[in-house]
Amino acid sequence: MPGREKFQLDLNTLRDKLIEIGSLTEIALSKAIDTLERQDIDRALEIIEEDKAVDVLDEEINDTAILLIAKQQPVATDLRRIIVAIKISNELERMADFAVNIAKATIRIGDEQLIKPIVHIKQMTEICAQMLSLSLKAYNEEDIVLAKKVADMDDQVDSLYGHIIKELLELTQDKRESMQQITQLLLVCRYLERFGDHATNISEGVFYLVKGRHYDLNT
């Protein structure tokens, strides 16, 4: 196989692995919130165990990218594609960790009845999942319009975050016996807020890939 064809095949492999990590991360997030709502400890433990697959893929992407840089010495757009692949893989690995953290929060809450329905937390999760899906679509299609849309959606996540935090802090006045649970739910909200930030970071990677310069979409 000619060198250029092999190089392009390896680039496609990086892209495919990123999409695979993204899919695993989206599934993990959905399962984590469902597990929290159902207070399913066994399923929470499964989420923690399944995260190993994401870590393996992240390592494979980094190894492949480093070998491509060392052997092919790519320039311009090809080099940006490799750099962005490494960056996005790291973002996705961190996002999957947030799903694991939500599962761990579920375990810490245990079977104590939830102090209130997690309706707004689920709304945050749905937006975060959409942001992840759109950011990966933007990456796959190298579409900065979609990437910008993801960044705009982060404002919705931040707004819900502020609203939920206020609600939970107000509950501390009358539910002192549930401080452990409230603390865990506050952490869950923080994990989701950070999840949205990382999805925005992926969009920034798309801008860098297409435009060749860095843009701060988190402001």
Rank of each mutant, 00 (worst) to 15 (best):
Q113P: 11
D42M: 06
S135K: 01
V150N: 14
I83P: 02
L114S: 14
G110D: 03
K71W: 00
I66R: 00
E46L: 15
D55V: 06
K31V: 09
C189E: 01
G205H: 03
I48N: 11
K122C: 10
G110S: 10
D58G: 11
E49L: 09
I109R: 04
Y191R: 10
N12G: 11
A44Y: 03
A44F: 09
E170N: 15
A99S: 15
I102K: 09
L68N: 07
Q8T: 07
I86N: 04
G110L: 00
E49T: 08
I69M: 06
I165E: 09
E141H: 14
I88T: 00
S23L: 04
Q123S: 12
I118L: 15
M124W: 04
A138N: 06
V119D: 15
I107M: 12
T125C: 03
Q156E: 15
H198V: 12
R38E: 07
E142G: 09
I61V: 14
D152S: 07
I33S: 03
I47Y: 02
T35I: 01
L57Y: 08
Y208E: 09
I21P: 06
M153H: 05
M1G: 00
R176L: 13
R194A: 04
M124Y: 03
A151Q: 09
T183N: 14
I164G: 02
I144L: 07
A32C: 10
I165G: 06
P117L: 15
H163P: 00
L187F: 00
V100G: 06
Q8A: 11
L18T: 04
I48L: 08
I127N: 02
K104D: 10
D154C: 01
L160Q: 02
L68R: 00
I109L: 05
L169M: 10
A28I: 05
Q184N: 08
G22E: 01
I21V: 11
S159T: 08
H120D: 15
L24M: 14
L169H: 09
D216K: 13
L146D: 02
I182H: 12
Y208I: 05
D55I: 10
K17D: 13
S159I: 12
K122V: 15
T35D: 08
I69V: 04
D216R: 13
Q173E: 12
L36V: 04
